[in-house]
Write a protein that binds this DNA or RNA. Sequence first.
DNA 1: TTTTATTGTCTCAATATGAGACAATGATAC
DNA 2: GTATCATTGTCTCATATTGAGACAATAAAA
Lengths: 251, 251
Amino acid sequence: MAKKLRQDASVVDGYGYLTNIAFDSVVFGFSGASLKILLMEYHNTGLFALPGGFVKLNEDLNAAVKRGLKERTGIDTIYLEQCYVFGDKARHQPAVMNTILKANGWAVPKEHWLLDRFISIAYYALVNYNDVTLVPDALSDSCTWYDITKLPPLILDHRLIVAKAQQTLQANLDSKIVGGNLLPKQFTMKELQQVYEAILGENIRRTTFQRKMLGLGILKRHQKKYSGKAHKAPYMYSFKKNKTAFSKQGG
Amino acid sequence: MAKKLRQDASVVDGYGYLTNIAFDSVVFGFSGASLKILLMEYHNTGLFALPGGFVKLNEDLNAAVKRGLKERTGIDTIYLEQCYVFGDKARHQPAVMNTILKANGWAVPKEHWLLDRFISIAYYALVNYNDVTLVPDALSDSCTWYDITKLPPLILDHRLIVAKAQQTLQANLDSKIVGGNLLPKQFTMKELQQVYEAILGENIRRTTFQRKMLGLGILKRHQKKYSGKAHKAPYMYSFKKNKTAFSKQGG
DNA sequence: TTTTATTGTCTCAATATGAGACAATGATAC
DNA sequence: GTATCATTGTCTCATATTGAGACAATAAAA
């Protein structure tokens, strides 16, 4: 708790953080056959934004993003990919941040560090929907899931960040283990297909998809899953470890 | 010239730039059937590095990178793609920068802004080898082309940045117009194939390559090119505009 | 035992790709 | 002129890969 207080203190005056650098994360989860992302709603403003944060002076960039995501989701080992850096000067809109701070009861001077210009490094994360315990930050009422096809308006260029993350996720769908990070350890072929369909935004032919996935040789077949429904029970699958390597690059 | 002096002045004290943020560019060119990149050699140090720079307070990030590249290459409209952000704290090695500054006759105090920690946003650029006019910066003896397969040791994590850029270029080879930016307006099929081979680092079957390229429908055929050699003259081609769209995303 | 909603596998056609054959050049040597 | 040689452009054929559907095998309920 003492630690938590010191962190808040440094956010107040900016001490202990790299300046002009922020990060924002698009956290993808999968539930009810559709793709969802995490959004924060700021107190008394009706404003929605992506979860984000700042990098400490003695902290790796990637570690900072993981720290931020752990605070929101409770997850320790989270799957992360960089997707783009947003650095236009037009994204510097101190009025927006001022609105949020004021609605929170923070009266800050004009030259407060949070009102300065930030370049935002955008990441996307993949989590198992059922593993997360959502926690809003000090400025927010809520941190909750929103269907990617039904997002409320977002502050600044956050809608653009989401679009870019979605685009990157689509591009990475074949080269990275996406399904394995969005689904539980074991899953059915149908669930995996639904993940692909939600990410690509299009229907996939069942038989072709099954053949292709099995052909990759990265799935391990387990027992059948008896759902109680009146039809043939599907097999459960898991991803074999280290087949399509998880991203682990220097930073 | 007055402008140039003011820029130097601001680099000296850091005034006018965003703090903690730098960019580095891997500039690809194609010549003699092989892929080359631009490297700077610092005065009296034997140290090689990628061309880079800093972002002005009132400047878009992408514009800053373009400004930096224009200073080195003389090219105005340069093809750029982001590739990765390097933000580990381990890349903060003030001793290296100090060596470079000292060799240049700059005695700087310990808390000089150039000795601070920087997060580097890495870009790659594609240029037509014959269009560039290379200009070293104030700290460098030279700015010249090096074959991608024969690079000297580079400072800090610049070797890693090159590797990442090469990787990204490979991944983008099919989805972006790479050849059209590395080659002159018109080129032969053989030259285009050599670009692909240099980027992928492997040989490509001639007939299959030709069939695939023509099949894409993005090439326009022009007259033959008579080289004076004793064999059939190849056709010249150019890329049709806006077929595989140039990257143009918000920032 | 039937019925119904799946699921797993096969087959056949339609494309795409790998690998080579081969005729058609351009200049040069004779 | 004619023969030679190093390409280049286009085919052809065998070999994957993918699209689209057929069909038998369930699992539980009627």
